[in-house]
Amino acid sequence: MTSISSLPASSAPSTTTTTTTTAQDTYIFSPIYSFPPFFTLQPNPITRSSQLQSWSAHIQSYCRAHRLFSISLIDALPTPLFTNATLSRALSLRDAKAVVHWMSTKDGGNRAEWTGRKGDVEAAETEGGRAWIYWRRPEEWAQVIEDWVDRTGQRGTVLTLYEVTESDATRREEFWGMEGELLQRCLGVCVKKGKAQIFGGEGSEGVKFF
């Protein structure tokens, strides 16, 4: 008989936290997170696709709660995102790559994207580099930012990118703390739709919504 010690039995799964922010303390993992086989990619293709979906949902909700816009696989592996210390189970780098890769495909709803320019993307993918996690896709972000501009009556004003993502005015907005590169991309969507214009040079850009 195998020992029962590794069983999750009665231990609450949400106790796996490293206390840095309040979000981490209160974050409730989905029930599947305390299911040991969740951390082994299933060989059966049907089960696997269901599992990938669960992983995608898990990663998105974790990143949303922790305001993570991108993750570096190597750095994220030991965090509660991929490691359940209570169960002593962790997703391997190879499997994590497979999950993120699946998220970046059409099947996965394009919910992730490896960062970097064209040439670097493959490198990032093979080495387990950084990837954007789109708990909101850039188009959706564009809409959120536009709504905020609307709500605060700032159409026609020039805003610096710093104001949008780092000032106190947006501290309560979901896009607060967004990385510059992603913000550029989201604003790019607005520009394409003819709803905004970006001014200024590298490092001191401003944006104006019409």
Partner: peptide, 9 residues
């Protein structure tokens, strides 16, 4: 998945 972890929702 839903019942075994013991942890509350």
């Amino acid at each position: 998945i839903s019942g075994g972890g013991g942890g509350g929702v």
